[in-house]
């Protein structure tokens, strides 16, 4: 029974991360209709930048700065590579985002190096554990689950109760009608890149103490996140959470 809880918690932790990556996919898919193959790289960038910034500033501000920097990177990527394309074909967009992911990865390899890094545990150390129904849980796991839940709730509130969020949803459901209503669809696309870069980076910060981060750690996460996004139905963020948890739990129990 202890083992059951142990695996369960591990599954939920990974599931939470997969959900966050999948939500990142969904946000961009909703506003642009493209799959951003560089989504995993945002997670990697988050972890990497946070580790570097943590060298000369305290952890909370390092994470905050990381999220902001990655958001700016996301916005720049959208403005440079995507904003000015007129009716790009799907094949073209796929290849462009794959190219972006390679460039980010190679840049990370040259800026940092191929070493594996990690942020310190947010509270306690590697060996701190909380006893929960006989299972030993690292406090970092609680951080991961907590922050992922907060992100999901905030996103939900944002999309349902703020003007910006509603505008983004309008663009998702019908871009032309949204533009007729005076919504700047292009800005919404930029905003979607900013959002998904931001939550990707946040996810990268939170998991880096457990899973570590190196320049090539984005791609596997992106593939799993995409699986989850498909599993929950592309574009459906709340279903992605459930799908992510299912995949995470399945994965941890199948070991």
């Amino acid at each position: 029974m202890e083992l059951f809880f142990q695996y369960m918690v591990a599954g939920i932790t990974y599931g939470a991360i997969y959900s966050i990556v999948a939500i990142g996919f969904n946000i961009i898919y909703n506003t642009t209709g493209i799959i951003n193959f560089a989504q995993g790289e945002f997670v990697m960038l988050g972890g990497m930048i946070a580790v570097t910034l943590n060298n000369f500033m305290p952890l909370p501000s390092a994470i905050l700065a990381t999220v902001l920097i990655t958001m700016i990177i996301g916005a720049l990527i959208e403005m440079i590579f995507i904003r000015w394309l007129v009716n790009p074909s799907v094949l073209r967009m796929i290849i462009i985002t794959i190219g972006i992911s390679i460039i980010i990865r190679e840049a990370a390899l040259h800026i940092w190096d191929e070493k594996v890094r990690a942020l310190p545990y947010f509270t306690g150390t590697e060996v701190t554990s909380i006893l929960f129904f006989g299972a030993h849980i690292s406090p970092q796991v609680l951080w991961v689950i907590g922050i992922c839940s907060v992100v999901v709730v905030l996103l939900n509130l944002f999309f349902n109760f703020t003007m910006r969020g509603r505008q983004m949803r309008a663009c998702a459901s019908n871009r032309n009608s949204a533009r007729l209503c005076g919504i700047n669809a292009k800005n919404m696309v930029t905003l979607s890149f900013v959002l998904s870069a931001g939550i990707g980076a946040l996810a990268g910060c939170v998991i880096s103490p457990i899973t570590y981060v190196h320049y090539d750690s984005g791609a596997p996460l992106a593939i799993k996140g995409f699986t989850v996004a498909i599993f929950g139905g592309l574009g459906n963020s709340m279903a992605a959470v459930v799908a992510g948890l299912i995949l995470g739990i399945l994965e941890s129990f199948s070991i």
């Binding site: 590579f81 394309l85 073209r92 290849i95 462009i96 794959i98 190219g99 972006i100 992911s101 390679i102 460039i103 990865r105 190679e106 840049a107 040259h110």
Partner: peptide, 16 residues
Amino acid sequence: TLDDAVFGGILILIML
């Protein structure tokens, strides 16, 4: 060492 980056860059530039 820019081998992979060159191919990624080519990919983006050509597609853009």
